[in-house]
Design a binder for these strands. Structure first.
Length: 1075
RNA sequence: GCCUUGGUGGCGGAACUGGUAGACGCGCUGGAUUCAAAAUCCAGUUCCUUCGGGAGUGAGGGUUCGAUUCCCUCCCAAGGUACCA
């Protein structure tokens, strides 16, 4: 009786389907186990051999768990909304629902022939209205929720409204928009309904906002960051530009910290956790507020002229001022000390740039300048007079002058005079003081508050809102040109070109929060508007980019690190570094200085410790047809949710699947797409009166919407009353094992965790992480085959003959090549008729192809289809071979040739059962069986499926040579094999006389007594190298072993007369002789 | 650049907490069976070798009686990420 896999596999696939063998029950005395494979997008190309890898692994584990007595949930479904079906619809007019249905049917056929133990009764399809009803439902729940930071969880929006009504929003700590105004209870209650709605949108977990989005004109849609690769769309490689649009967003940032913390308690691969950690991008530091120094108040140079220093020469001025501050004359120093001691109610600065001069002392509030003159030369006198005139007449300052002598000999009189003048002057227009009445402030985020005294300039992103407000007239042209140039450059250019340093000075200055020194404000495109506050305090000595920028524009690079050379590059090391030249931070380590700097900033109200995240809120609108419609209509421009009881809101029919001529999303083509609030149904657009009939949302949801809770829906997939019943979710709890590709690391797997946490907060699910363990299966790559055609001739050379010849490799279809890399030349000629007349130069009578591992792709002719393999070798062979290829998580090349190995294993296995007897098993039989049980069980638990396949081979080889026919051995062996090769296992099980499916037979129990050995073949090594083996009893003691080994003739031969220095004996393991 | 994972025969890959490197399979070589082929079975297959043996897990060093395994430095490959302040 031959192993007729075709008949066997068809028979059992039919049996499983008819008997619903794998249907999971939502209540059982057995412990539960939920094993899940990521559901596929049903693409038109069907499955290739790479796709089932993860499914097979999940299936093996599911079947194993059934043998182990678990109630196993192992479902499958389809992520059936998506762009390809829509693109196809655009090209052909075929409705995406039809294409999708066809593809699903094809997928189902392919999956069925592989013998998976899916519970198909629970199948879900994200594009099915019965399914997306609940996607819409979750959207509504998110809309009706806000994030309470005090409780660190999401709550119903009702609780927020209640607070607003009672006390306004002063005490509310919520994840909300940055521009949320503050208001009291009275304000709130006085707001109109629309105003209230506007405010609430700033708090809701899904909200409408004008967002700068990645717009892809070619696809007519917005793309998420993870849908863009290298600045072009992942699909199609079309250019992407930045554009402002009103979009639905998901406030995932509210969950940033919890998404980070949750990673610690789930067993997911480290690289995946790392990329999520990276993506969330937490950094600790401080936010620091810099006041922007005001413009000069007087006329003359124009209202916006800057107080401090002429922009065209500020670099030189600042350098000189610094220099002069360091080297004051004795008179200057004396007066400076006195002014500081005197507590004059006003603040003086010294060596300060004003207009095109540097003045000795200045009080900005009073517009008073004090100059101390040294020996006066004639030429100097003229200049000073002109300077005084300019400053007094044109700039509105009061200038008083003293000589060095006056200051040194009669300081008190000098101070008296200054006090008199001060009291006579009115305070200026609210500039220069320390009060917080500056018209503009720049907030920055820094991870290095300890370097605050190293700040020598600030840089704003060109898109920063303050840029237009603070730029001086002199600099306006340059700044405008720069901003425009940056906007034109695509993200791609900006990214590609990181080496070019560019930027423009705005002409404006900020004031250092501690030293009160003016700091020039620049703009530069190395600062990103989308990260932090879009502004940085530049510390060139500590940050390489700041350093490069400073070097390029000749900006001062103060060194604030003790004993560190910064003449060549910035110094970024935080460990063992001592801060210097930093006032109260001097002598502290970076760590200490950070704390100190933050507390000092907090004292003067200029900053606070802050945690910043890279994670942005997720844009949730897509300008597509083939996606979930939003359950939203608009009244007076404000979004309204359709009541849950009228869901699902089904996708409307459209004539065309492209965006409308006016640039609206494809749903803009629908003629029946308006909401009647009386009838609570969709009606024709003609009826829109904005009284009872309103327009519906035209965007649809993104791809990840349908996949963010599907794993929970499987628990109760036909429930029309709820997304799932409390009983179902409380029984199944969460996914125990989730297997899928790593490409979903920062997409599906992050969004799903976010929604799960939200569902948890709202009390819908009992676990705030949906999958305890996750495994990323590796990619299966193709092994391409090449023939080599000589250039300018019609000759095609075999691989061994190409050296020295000018040949081009040409892909040959892998199905035309046999296991020995020989090409079927005739078949090749038939496949590519252009080579019909080509001369194939053979070696040893064969044409040998070249081989190379590449990604599986149609264009490389290396795609291997599982259908053909099932036909030739059977599903069990395919399943075994996919596992046998290598470790699950590793990427590995496919080579169909190797499948003969596992196929002949199955044939040998089959033969073993030809004459089953009731004979008592021998000790050898039992030993073989039990070591197999042990190894296979360990392997499955460790997801090391490749090694258990070889264990099976060893087992069958051994039992065959033992001529084992004993049922007591062969019956448990069938169960061991069953998770891997279920069809043959079922058949053998039945032939052994069992009725019913093998799938619930208990897993054989390992008994270690069968493995006990009497003796051991000791490896005898010399200096760690094994030289020969010696069989010795296991109960032999250390000394006896040593004696026995040393007495052996081979030992003596090895030693060659030398006496060993040392003999290491590890009983039961090894003997090592050193000498 | 940074983070992560890897690097073992012609190929895919084994090797538990440091203890016989190359299990298992493919391919290859030889043989049996056959009119022949397929299939099947048997033997061999890391490299070098003067057939005694010697070398060997990306490279170099270290710890150890003993290192694919632990430590240090470097090289290479794959995946993720990036003017992230």
């Amino acid at each position: 009786m031959n192993y007729d896999f075709r008949e066997i596999e068809a028979k059992w696939q039919k049996y499983w389907a008819e008997n619903e063998t794998f249907k999971a029950s939502n209540n059982s005395d057995k412990p539960k186990f939920y094993a899940l494979s990521m559901f596929p997008y049903p693409s038109g190309a069907g499955l290739h051999v790479g796709h089932p890898l993860g499914y097979i692994a999940t299936d093996i584990y599911s079947r194993y768990k059934r043998h182990k007595g678990f109630n196993v949930l192992h479902p499958m479904g389809y992520d059936s909304f998506g762009l390809p079906a829509e693109q196809y619809a655009i090209q052909t007019g075929q409705h995406p629902a039809i294409t999708t249905e066809n593809n699903i049917n094809r997928y189902r056929e392919q999956l069925d022939q592989l013998g998976f133990s899916f519970d198909w009764s629970r199948e879900v399809r994200t594009s099915d209205p019965k399914y997306y009803k609940w996607t819409q439902w979750i959207f509504i729940q998110l809309f009706n929720a806000w994030y309470n930071k005090k409780k660190d969880k999401a709550e119903s929006i009702e609780t927020l409204i209640a607070i607003f009504e009672k006390e306004g929003n002063a005490s509310v700590e919520a994840a909300c928009d940055d521009d949320t105004p503050s208001f009291g209870a009275a304000d709130w209650n006085a707001y109109s309904e629309k105003e209230k709605q506007k405010i609430l949108l700033k708090y809701r977990l899904t909200y409408l906002a004008d967002t700068e989005v990645n717009w892809c004109p070619a696809l007519g849609t917005v793309l998420a960051n993870d849908e863009i690769v290298n600045g072009v769309s992942e699909r199609g490689g079309h250019p992407v530009i930045r554009k402002k649009m009103t979009q639905w967003s998901m406030r995932i940032t509210a969950y940033a910290q919890r998404l980070l913390d949750g990673l610690d308690k789930i067993d997911w691969p480290q690289p995946l956790k790392d990329s999520q950690t990276n993506w969330i991008g937490r950094s600790e530091g401080a936010s620091v507020t810099f006041n922007v120094l005001p413009p000069t108040p007087s006329g003359g140079g124009g209202a916006n002229a800057r107080l401090t220093g002429d922009s065209s020469m500020i670099g030189i001025l600042l350098d000189r001022a610094k220099e002069m501050r360091k080297n004051p004359t004795s008179a200057e120093d004396k007066l400076w000390q006195a002014l500081r001691r005197k507590n004059l109610d006003v603040k003086f600065r010294r060596q300060h740039p004003v207009y095109k001069y540097i003045v000795d002392f200045i009080c900005l509030e009073k517009k008073l300048i004090i100059e101390v003159d040294g020996e006066i030369h004639d030429y100097q006198l003229d200049k000073d007079a002109q300077r005084t005139l300019e400053l007094e007449q044109k700039k509105g300052f009061t200038v008083i002058r003293f000589t060095n002598d006056e200051v040194i000999s009669n300081l008190e009189a000098v101070i008296k005079k200054i006090e008199d003048v001060l009291s006579s002057l009115s305070t200026g227009e609210g500039w220069g003081g320390d009060n917080n009445d500056h018209p503009h402030q720049i907030e920055v985020f820094t991870t290095r508050p300890d370097t605050i005294f190293g700040v020598s300039f600030m840089t704003l992103a060109p898109e920063h809102e303050l840029v237009s407000k603070i730029t001086t007239p002199q600099q306006k042209a340059a700044v405008d040109a720069y901003v425009e140039a940056t906007a034109k450059r695509s993200e791609r250019d900006r990214m590609a070109d990181v080496k070019t340093i560019s930027g423009v000075f705005t002409g404006a200055y900020a004031e250092h929060p501690f030293t009160k020194e003016p700091i020039p404000i620049w703009i530069g495109d190395y600062v990103l508007a989308s990260y932090g506050t879009g502004a940085v305090m530049a510390v060139p000595c500590g940050d390489q980019r700041d350093y490069d920028f400073a070097k390029h524009f000749n900006i001062d690079i103060p060194n604030i690190f003790e004993g560190v050379d910064i003449s060549e590059e910035a110094f970024a090391d935080k460990e063992n570094t001592i801060i210097a030249n930093s006032d109260f931070l001097n002598g502290l380590t970076c760590k200490e200085a950070m704390k100190k700097a933050i507390s000092e900033l907090e004292k003067i109200g200029h900053g606070k410790g802050k945690v910043n995240y890279r994670l942005r809120d997720a844009v949730f609108s897509r300008q597509r047809y083939w996606g979930e419609p939003f359950p939203v209509y608009y009244v007076d421009g404000m979004p309204q949710m359709i009541d849950e009881k009228y869901l699902p809101l089904e996708l409307p029919e459209v004539e065309k699947y492209l965006p409308t001529e006016t640039g609206e999303p494809p749903l803009g083509n629908a003629t029946v797409w308006a909401w009647d609030t009386n009838k609570n149904e969709v009606v024709t657009n003609d009826l829109i009166d904005n009284k009872t009939v309103f327009p519906l949302e035209l965007n649809t949801m993104p791809g990840w919407a349908g996949s963010s809770q599907y794993f929970n829906r499987y628990m109760d997939p036909h429930n029309d009353e709820a997304i799932f019943s409390p009983e179902a979710i409380n029984y199944w709890q969460d996914v125990d094992l989730y297997i899928g590709g790593s490409e979903h690391a920062t997409g599906h797997l992050l969004y799903s965790r976010f929604w799960q946490k939200f569902m948890f907060d709202m009390g819908y699910v009992p676990k705030d992480e949906f999958a305890q363990k996750l495994i990323n299966q590796g990619m299966i790559t193709g092994t391409s085959a090449f023939v080599y055609r000589e250039l300018d001739s019609n000759k095609v050379y075999s691989k061994g003959l190409i050296s020295g010849k000018n040949v081009v490799p040409i892909h040959a279809d892998v199905s035309l090549v046999n296991a020995s890399d020989e090409l079927d030349v005739e078949a090749f000629k038939e496949w590519q008729p252009e080579y019909k007349d080509a001369e194939f130069i053979l070696e040893d009578g064969k044409y040998i192809v070249g081989r190379e591992v590449e990604k599986m792709s149609k264009s490389k002719y290396n795609v291997v289809n599982p259908d053909a393999i099932c036909e030739e070798y059977g599903a069990d062979s395919l399943r075994l071979y996919e596992m046998f290829l290598g470790p699950l998580e590793q990427s590995k090349p496919w080579n169909t040739a190797g499948i003969t190995g596992v196929h002949s294993f199955l044939k040998k296995l089959w033969k073993l059962y030809a004459n089953v007897s009731d004979k008592e098993p021998t000790a050898d039989n039992l030993k073989t069986l039990h070591k197999t049980i042990k190894k296979v069980e360990e392997d499955i638990e460790n997801f090391s499926f490749n090694t258990s396949v070889s264990t099976f081979m060893i087992c069958v080889n051994e039992l065959t040579s033992q001529k084992c026919t004993s049922k007591a051995i062969l019956e448990p062996l069938a169960i061991l094999v069953s998770p891997y090769a279920p069809h043959i296992a079922e058949e053998l099980w039945e032939r052994l006389g069992n009725t019913g499916s093998i799938s619930v037979a208990p897993f054989p129990k390992f008994d270690s007594t069968y493995l006990v050995e009497r003796s051991k073949e000791y490896p005898i090594s010399f200096n760690g190298k094994m030289r020969f083996k010696l069989e010795l009893p296991l109960d032999m003691g250390k000394d006896e072993i040593e004696a026995a080994v040393l007495a052996h003739e081979k030992t003596q031969a090895q030693l060659g007369g030398r006496t060993p220095k040392k003999v290491i004996v590890v009983p039961g393991k090894i003997v090592n002789i050193v000498g």
